[in-house]
Design a protein around this nucleic acid. Sequence first.
DNA 1: TCGCAGGTGGTCG
DNA 2: CGACCACCTGCG
Length: 297
Amino acid sequence: MSRELIFEGVRDFDCDHIFDCGQCFRWYREEDGSYTGLAGCALANVAFEPHDRDAAPGFSEGTVRVRVLAGPEDAEDPALWSRYLDLGRDYGAIKARLSADDPVMEQAIAAGSGIRILDQDLWETIVSFIISQNNNIPRIKGCIERLADGFGEPLEGAEGARGQRALILKTLPGPERLAGLEAEDLAPVRLGYRTRYLVETARCVAEKGLPRNMEELSSLCGVGPKVANCIALFGMGKRDSFPIDVWVRRVMAKCYGFDEGDMKGMAGFARSRYGELGGYAQQYLFYYIRGLDEKNR
DNA sequence: TCGCAGGTGGTCG
DNA sequence: CGACCACCTGCG
């Protein structure tokens, strides 16, 4: 399997912004600036060619190419990828609304103008963000790959993916599979104390089904306010969610003058200032402050 | 050696 | 309630 899907006339799109803004953990940058990774159980390479090569990243109309490398039959369905990459949404309008009368957002958007919020699989989002807590990104990625490698299913049609990194040739294990495991089985994955959270959550989901709202989400073990907001935003399409992590606390303190411990104040501010666009605002701010931190080192 | 990394659950006052 | 604090693991 190796078919190329082409989407013409796409605006507000940049692979680095999209795959490195902290929303996903199974996409890896290639030499040419494209990204290879998994959307559910489909393996693909995503590249963007701006028509205006001199334009700043995320500011030029261009072509998105999706080379589907492995997965089930419907992995080659353009509609699936259009939905996953959120191509049907007008990010220009979102950015205009957010930056109106807000110089901070204007600056943040300039830094990550090609961000798009991916429409990810709910269960994978739950697993990923339980693992992400009090953890760093390289180790989060390692944990997720070890979990897939040790307990997931091989990708369908993976023979077409020969030569791709061996890391991403398996899907994450589903709730039923994880529910049948003991903590000691998962020891090689080195999740630390998150092992218990994951197994308990898997058992809960295997028994009662996937969560359908914030309340059911928050009842899961290892899912506090921050993780719940991430899952809602990335896995349930709740684009008004505003996850407050250490980076958002930093940027809100630095740019809006909040006390770093004042999460309630920040949440209230986000609700009234960004409203239904809270999730987009959070992604721009997150990418912006992490980029600043990068420059300081 | 120690603090920190995309927090949460448990325990106090 | 709200303010602590321990917690796996790995890296600088």
